[in-house]
């Protein structure tokens, strides 16, 4: 069950895992995510699905090392089995022909964005994608993104690749040039906040896919709650996609930091233990 059939490093800290999960591969749609737990003592963490091959019965997960649990996951190798994998969870993206779609992916946010731009492209939309990251090494899945985009704009903070500048600058460039009917933004919460402010300024309907803390992923714990349009929503069952202009990103940013201290400590502990063992 849940055997890893392929593994690829996108960068030092970002790994793609191709995993055998025939039911999920068949049932998943753009926007869905899974919960992964590895080992008896493992933590349940949500990961978005970057793609699937229903015939092969595999799904693609892109994992970024941000704590102990994701680090352990990236240390697994081809042939290893993940103890627990459940999904597809969340609501699928609502895809229709709207005209021009401006998709923006920040960092590993490009992974969940990929199936969404694929779906919008197949629905007959003009898709322009802005990929943004701190530097060239952190730009991932560019080739696949190009396959489903009419145009790709790459933005790096340091200018090591594409244009130098923030994601919002790339977005402004497109918006000032042509009419955009819908925007999709996925990435770190802070990036989504500013991307959403940009589109709001131009009155462009925008959806964001949120990545919050979760335990069960089925509505049970409420750890993922966010405020959207003044109402409390659960990302796992009501989302993960919401009207970006209605999301209280400041509160979300705050909540994401909830376990930061504990997690940092845990990661340092884990790293020091592993080094001693070597």
């Amino acid at each position: 069950m849940n055997k890893i059939v392929a593994k690829e490093f996108f960068s030092e800290n970002v790994v793609r895992l191709e995993i055998e999960a025939p039911r999920i591969a068949k049932a998943r749609r753009a926007g869905h995510f899974v919960i992964v737990k590895n080992g008896v003592d493992g933590e349940r963490i949500p990961l978005t699905i970057a793609g699937s091959d229903p015939k092969k019965g595999t799904i693609d997960l892109v994992v970024q090392r941000v704590g102990v649990s994701s680090r352990k996951l990236t240390e697994l190798n081809v042939g290893d089995e993940i103890t627990d994998l459940v999904g597809p969870l969340g609501k699928a993206t609502h895809v229709e022909k709207v005209g021009t779609v401006l998709a923006c992916g920040g960092g590993v946010g490009v992974a969940p964005l990929l199936p969404i731009i694929e779906a919008f492209k197949l629905a007959g939309n003009r898709v322009i994608t802005v990929l943004a990251a701190r530097n060239k090494d952190l730009i991932i899945l560019e080739e696949q993104v190009r396959k489903y985009s009419d145009e790709v704009v790459v933005m790096t903070d340091d200018g090591s690749y594409g244009n130098k500048g923030l994601v919002t600058e790339g977005m402004e460039m497109i918006i000032n040039r042509e009419k955009v009917d819908l925007s999709v933004v996925i990435g770190p919460a802070i990036m989504m906040k500013f991307a959403s402010m940009t589109t709001k300024k131009h009155n462009i309907p925008t959806m964001a896919s949120l990545n919050t803390i979760m335990v069960d992923g089925t509505g049970m714990c409420g750890a993922c709650r966010v405020t959207v349009g003044g109402k409390v929503k659960f990302v796992c069952v009501d989302g993960p996609e919401f009207d970006a202009h209605q999301v209280d990103f400041d509160e979300m940013l705050l909540r994401l930091s909830g376990y930061k201290g504990i997690e940092k400590e845990a990661e340092l502990n884990y790293l020091s233990k592993n080094c001693n063992a070597k």
Binding site: V215, D216, M220, C221, G222, A223, V226, T227, V232, R255
Partner: peptide, 15 residues
């Protein structure tokens, strides 16, 4: 109610 440190009993007990 969404401040850090406020959680549902479900989350608390599940953890």
């Amino acid at each position: 109610e969404n401040y850090i440190g406020i959680l549902s009993s479900n989350e608390y007990l599940t953890r």
